[in-house]
């Protein structure tokens, strides 16, 4: 059963522009443009896109904070617009930039308050808190006021806070933003275990593509409010990552090689990087052509990493999406 379902969801905002001294002109901006998406129970779905692509707007609609202009949304079978409070008991939300915790109180107090806000039975709450203290090593700062926590500690606290009421669905908006490498790894490990062991459906919004590669079974990419890719990480690589790079170590340093169908993208002494299109040629042909021109010592083939792929998507290289936001006909 689909836990999260969006059908033709549109969200438009009015933006007021200054036109003259006092007069203002209204302009309609489409933050989310006919997105349809279905996330099954137990999925861990990455939701990525450049700044302003409409990610946060989507998460806000899914939580019922804002309502869509048109289209249909169902979360756990409920309409977030009409059943916000009922739904709130079944979802957990982490906004990476803003804490849900009580700023001036010890972390333990926030957890206790949330037990009451969500009316979690005492035993269940105790068991959850203890489990999360172990998983996230919260023990040393449970009695520290939240404002004194480091960013990593606070994020661990926020993750716990979002999960104490056993939500079926967890929305994460940039949960690793600003964290150091160790904290990031720890958060990822934790999310994977929450998804695996508790069966929580996770929708993860992030800029950190390592998050996506390590965690997500599925990747949804949006840009300018439109869904431009929905599939596995491998699929996106093969769809948008048609290029491979052959790294050759030559016996001697030389000028850039000239190989049909490939392009030298880097030279470092005897090492050269040759990028080629898989549709046009093969790695074997490129290596053979290089071997004809120079003495080869070693070769390696680099797969495109997700970062490259997404950078290309964002820059408009791979997908052709018209820029709706500046379309004057919508104004």
């Amino acid at each position: 059963m689909a836990q999260i379902e969006l059908v033709d969801v549109v969200k438009e905002y009015s933006v007021w522009h200054r036109a003259g001294r006092v007069r203002r002109q209204r302009k309609l901006v489409r933050a989310v443009d006919r997105i349809s998406l279905s996330v099954a129970e137990g999925e861990l779905c990455g939701y990525i896109g450049p700044n302003g692509a409409g990610k946060s707007t989507t998460v806000k609609m899914l939580t019922g904070i804002i309502v869509p202009t048109s289209g249909r949304i169902r979360v756990a079978g409920k309409d977030p617009q009409r059943q916000r409070i009922e739904l709130a008991r079944r979802i957990g939300v982490v906004f990476g930039q803003r804490t849900q915790l009580w700023w001036d109180l010890p972390l333990a107090d926030s957890f206790d308050l949330l037990r009451h806000v969500y009316r979690v039975p005492h035993d269940r709450h105790r068991a959850n808190v203890n489990a999360f203290i172990d998983l996230l090593d919260l023990g040393p700062f449970m009695q520290t006021p939240v404002r004194q926590l480091s960013l990593g500690q606070r994020m661990r606290g926020d993750l716990t806070a979002a999960l104490l009421h056993d939500p079926e669905i967890l929305y994460l908006d940039e949960p690793t933003i600003g964290l150091d490498v160790v904290s990031k790894a720890r958060v990822r490990e934790f999310l994977a275990s929450v998804n695996r062991d508790r069966g929580v459906t996770v929708l993860l919004t992030t800029h950190d593509l390592t998050d996506v590669e390590r965690l997500c079974t599925r990747l949804v990419v949006i840009d300018h409010g439109r869904l431009i890719h929905d599939g596995t990480v491998a699929e996106i690589k093969s769809r948008f990552g048609d290029h491979r790079t052959v790294v050759v170590d030559l016996e001697e340093a030389g000028p850039p090689l000239e190989v049909a169908g490939a392009e030298v993208v880097g030279v470092d002494g005897p090492r050269q990087w040759l990028r080629f299109d898989r549709q046009a040629t093969t790695a074997a042909a490129v290596v053979a052509a290089v071997a004809e021109q120079a003495a080869l010592r070693d070769i390696a083939i680099e797969e495109p990493d997700i970062e490259d792929v997404v950078r290309r998507i964002y820059s408009g290289d791979a997908a052709s999406t018209p820029d709706l936001r500046d379309d004057p006909s919508r104004a």
Partner: peptide, 14 residues
């Protein structure tokens, strides 16, 4: 302004 009003909207209370 700070965006912290949203947190009351994700909780199951008025």
């Amino acid at each position: 302004k700070q965006g912290t009003f949203d947190r009351v909207l994700v909780r199951p209370m008025s």
